[in-house]
Amino acid sequence: MLQISPRDSVGPENLSPGDETYFWRVSRHGDLDCFTATFRKHIFPPHTHETYVIGVTLDGVHSYMHKGVKVRCEAGTICFINPDEVHDGSPDTYGYSYRMTYPSPDFLTAVLREATGRAVGTPRFRLAGAHDPELAQMFCAAHRALEDNTQPLLADEKLIGFYLAAVERYGGGLPSIIAAGAEPDTIARTKDYLLAHLSEATDFQDLAAHVGLSAWHLIRVFRKATGLTPHAWLVDRRVHHARELLRAGESPSHIALQCGFADQAHLTRSFKARLGVTPGQYRALLN
């Protein structure tokens, strides 16, 4: 199903052959708009957004005028456009593909405030395009996880981590982060919540609200106490539960959803990554 971003106003009647667009919205992140597209000929006229425009060119060259300077975003280059900054957009040579997000100033400011425990100003990115393959890879992993929408806890960890790293490197830096204590009661309640929702697609905002911490603060203190992020710990426990069910005689095809995995392939990947064998191989070893 083709969905068109209202922010870019690219309707089907305006698409050229070879152009593809897909838009979706993540309500739990302040109605964060996400966009993936391939453009071969489409040209955006000068325009602005009330949000940030942050994304990564996947292939080809995405070029745009920004403050009188032509920016050429090749593969692995991150686009940073602040709210209300005029820019256009056009394909360079044979066209380009990209993944994009449009976080609101309120959402990005809230992420920084929760991460640092301090009142912060609205960040301003100093570069319209930054070639940073490492950060680009972080963004693409977060964007794909948001699009897949089967593991919201993982997607949220990746997205928040990317935005913080982006502001740290290109948006003026982060203030000193609040010290995180051991907070054993918080860690215990987090584990209890995750275990109680083992088979569900846990939402990070619900988890953080349940234990009374901001999402990013929770990630930090949980990792400090356990050595794992909440999502990594949850996947670990899901694999443990799958192993218990296999020992009880359950077949691999019946336990994936019981353990909170999207499908049997997801169970197999996670199981083999941690134990070195597939669930089927493990079950065979028990006989």
Rank of each mutant, 00 (worst) to 15 (best):
H197D: 03
L207G: 05
A209E: 15
A166E: 01
S214Y: 10
F204L: 10
Q205T: 15
K224C: 02
R237H: 13
A215S: 09
E200P: 00
T226K: 14
D206M: 11
R189V: 05
P184T: 08
A180G: 01
D236F: 05
H241Y: 12
Q264Y: 02
G260Q: 05
H254K: 15
A208M: 08
H266D: 15
L218M: 11
A242N: 08
E200F: 07
K191R: 15
F222V: 11
A182C: 01
W233E: 03
A208C: 12
T229R: 06
A262I: 05
A208Y: 03
L218P: 00
H210I: 02
R243T: 11
V239N: 01
Y163L: 13
G181M: 04
A215R: 14
L207I: 06
I178A: 14
R189C: 10
A180F: 00
I187M: 08
Y170G: 05
L194S: 04
G227K: 02
L207D: 03
A256S: 15
W216H: 12
Y193T: 09
A265Q: 14
S176R: 11
A256I: 10
F204I: 03
A209P: 04
W216A: 09
D185C: 01
L228S: 13
L246H: 13
R220D: 05
L174H: 03
H197A: 06
T186M: 06
T202A: 14
A265Y: 13
A248S: 15
D263I: 06
A256G: 09
D236W: 05
D206W: 03
A225G: 11
T202W: 01
A232M: 07
R189L: 09
G212M: 09
F261T: 06
T202Y: 00
L246P: 07
H231R: 10
R223W: 04
A182F: 01
I219C: 04
S251K: 14
G227I: 02
A179T: 11
T190K: 08
A209N: 14
D192I: 05
F261D: 07
L198C: 07
R169N: 02
L218N: 02
A215I: 07
T186A: 06
